[in-house]
Computed example of a mutant assay.
Amino acid sequence: MPLDLIPYPVDDSARPTIMVLPGGGYQHLADHEGEPVAHWLNSLGLHAAVLRYALGEDAHPQALVDGRNGLRALRSGRAGLAVERDRLGVLGFSAGGHLAAMLATDSPDVMGAPSLSYAGRPDAAILCYPVTDLREALDGRIPNLHRGSARTLLGEDASAELLLDLSPAARVDEDIPPCFFWTTSDDEGVPALHSLEMMTALAVAGIPFEAHVFRHGRHGLGLATEEEPAVAQWQRLCATWLAGLGWNPPA
Rank of each mutant, 00 (worst) to 15 (best):
Ser94Trp: 00
Pro130Ser: 05
Ser94Met: 05
Ile126Phe: 07
Ala243Glu: 13
Gly80Val: 03
Cys128Trp: 00
Pro108Val: 11
Val10Phe: 11
Phe214Cys: 12
Pro7Leu: 03
His32Ala: 05
Arg85Ser: 08
Phe93Met: 12
Ala251Met: 12
Gly120Lys: 05
Leu81Thr: 03
Leu44Arg: 11
Ala232Pro: 04
Trp182Ala: 04
Thr225Lys: 15
Pro208Gln: 14
Leu29Ala: 14
Met198Gly: 07
Ala251Tyr: 12
Asp86Trp: 00
Asp133Arg: 01
Glu174Gly: 07
Leu164Met: 06
Arg135Ile: 00
Leu81Ala: 01
Ala124Gln: 03
Pro168Ile: 02
Ala101Tyr: 01
Leu64Cys: 01
Pro122Met: 02
Ile207Gly: 00
Thr240Gln: 08
Met1Glu: 07
Ala63Thr: 14
Asp165Ala: 15
Ala201His: 11
Ala48Pro: 13
Cys238Gly: 06
Ala48Tyr: 13
Gly25Met: 07
Gln233Pro: 01
Tyr129Asn: 15
Asn42His: 10
Asp11Gly: 05
Leu116Ile: 13
Val172Glu: 11
Gly89Ala: 09
Arg218Leu: 13
Gly96Pro: 08
Val190Ala: 09
Val20Pro: 08
Ala170Gly: 01
Arg218Val: 14
Pro114Asn: 08
Gln235Ala: 10
Ala54Glu: 15
Ile142Cys: 09
Gly92Trp: 01
Pro168Val: 02
Leu74Trp: 02
Leu202Glu: 15
Gly25Asp: 08
Val172Phe: 08
Ser159Asp: 13
Gly67Gln: 05
Gly96Met: 10
Pro178Ser: 04
Ala101Thr: 04
Leu154Ser: 02
Arg147Phe: 00
Phe209Ile: 05
Glu210Cys: 03
Glu57Trp: 10
Leu164Val: 04
Gly148Pro: 02
Leu71Trp: 01
Ala125Pro: 13
Pro191His: 13
Tyr129Asp: 15
Ala160Gln: 08
Leu138Asn: 03
Ile18Thr: 12
Asp175Cys: 02
Gly70Pro: 09
Trp40Arg: 14
Met1Val: 10
Leu202Gln: 13
Asp106Tyr: 05
Glu210Met: 03
Ala54Gln: 12
Thr152Ile: 14
Ala169Ile: 00
Asp66Phe: 14
Leu21Thr: 02
Pro7Lys: 04
Gly24Val: 02
